[in-house]
Simulated scan of single mutants.
Amino acid sequence: MKLCYNQATTLENSNLVKDLEYCEKNGYDYIEIRTMDKLPEYLKDHTLDELKHFFQTNHIKPLALNALVFFNNRDEAGYKEIITEFKGMMETAKALNIPYVVAVPLVTEEKILKSEIKRSCVNVLTELSEIAKTYGVKVALEFIGHPQCTVNTFGQAYEIVEAVGRDNIGLVLDCFHFHAMGSNISDLEKADISKIFILHMDDTEDFPVSFLTDEDRVWPGHGAINLDQMLSILKEKGYSGAVSVELFRPEYYQLSAEEAIKTAKDTTVEVVSKHFTLETTK
């Protein structure tokens, strides 16, 4: 298993240049690049060619563009914006040789029937699949463990991916989101492991189900999630993708970027290495 860094972990105390420098120094294999903020910020003073050159001349490589946000149950104008944005992401993925794009479902106060959510997700993901296949890119649906997210459990997300039925459409399994809305561990036990493209590693304070927010995340192994149970299932089923550490902890944003990146690695390795061999370089 290879180790990846998600830029959310230093969202408020770093940038793409520093994240790449410190991730390379600390032996990460991959990085998930935030397209909402960190990549546009980088491109104000740099070019995609510069970023491509960095990846060509260093060990670390890009794993995913994160993320295509709120892709489902949009009005006509919103739907067209999503398709246009995704096509732009495909060009970026092609330029940087990025294998995955993460897609995040709509978060809304509006009550939408689950049947309508599924219908919309399946339709849009099927179209994204068609666009992505010409680029050799895969789309990873990330369910969000929050009551107001339209797709908020592993079982619901897996059902959508199964309905799409395309090899380039799969899932992000985020341990926090799995725990936060009480996803059923039996759904993970029954899942086709090839449908899980990326594993997000994190932990959380012990608040009740449906009350957790991203700010409650803590270093892996420092919280209430039964990570050993999840990792043992993934190991038994033959998961071979990357593990990407993703935290949104405000107090961690007070650390230096390098300290946060190093601690994120150390805590992730400590938890994951009980079950998988991590191919880290340092």
Rank of each mutant, 00 (worst) to 15 (best):
K2A: 04
Y5D: 01
Y5T: 06
T10E: 06
L11I: 07
E21W: 02
C23F: 02
K25Q: 05
M36R: 08
M36N: 09
T57L: 02
T57N: 09
N66V: 14
A67D: 11
V69C: 07
F70V: 15
N73M: 05
D75P: 06
E76H: 08
G78I: 08
Y79V: 09
T92V: 14
T92D: 03
N97Q: 13
P99T: 09
Y100I: 01
A103S: 13
P105W: 13
T108E: 11
T108K: 09
E110G: 00
K114A: 13
R119W: 15
E127H: 06
E127S: 07
A132L: 05
Y135R: 03
A140I: 09
E142Y: 02
E142Q: 09
E142G: 02
I144N: 09
T150Y: 11
T150P: 04
N152I: 10
V161R: 05
A163W: 08
N168Q: 05
G170M: 06
L173Y: 08
D174C: 05
C175K: 01
H177K: 01
D187Y: 01
E189D: 04
A191F: 07
D192E: 12
F197I: 11
H200D: 14
M201C: 06
D202P: 07
T204S: 14
E205C: 08
E205P: 05
F207N: 12
F211H: 14
L212D: 13
E215I: 15
G221D: 04
A224M: 12
Q229I: 11
S232C: 01
G238C: 01
Y239V: 02
Y239R: 03
A242W: 07
A242C: 10
A242G: 08
S244L: 00
V245D: 00
R249M: 06
L255M: 15
E258S: 08
E259K: 13
K262S: 12
D266P: 11
T267C: 07
T267G: 00
T268Y: 00
V269M: 10
L278G: 04
